[in-house]
Amino acid sequence: MSEEKHHIVPYRVYIIVLLALLALTFASIGITSIELGEYTVAGALIFACIKSFLVLTYFMHLKYDKKYIRAMVVFVFVIFVVMIVITFLDYLYR
């Protein structure tokens, strides 16, 4: 099974990603300590989404994997979001 090719990710990439993640964490703590009212959750979730994008892309190697794995991940997240939206068709209008 020699045909498999490994993309060796340099340490530098991981360190940069970690620093970015830490910066985003502290930024989200900072942002939410400001009184933003109903936008607090939205703000926190946007930061969480960016962070999870970084984890998926670099730590979980999606950037270097075959495209169909990426497509599956996107599909699963879409299904989940659609599930929440549909449930809220009930709770928003009840």
Partner: peptide
């Protein structure tokens, strides 16, 4: 990383609201 990913969402939803 999955465990990490879940925590990334748990943290703001429970501690930062």
């Amino acid at each position: 990383h999955l465990v990490d990913l879940i925590w990334i969402f748990l943290f703001p939803l429970f501690y930062l609201i």
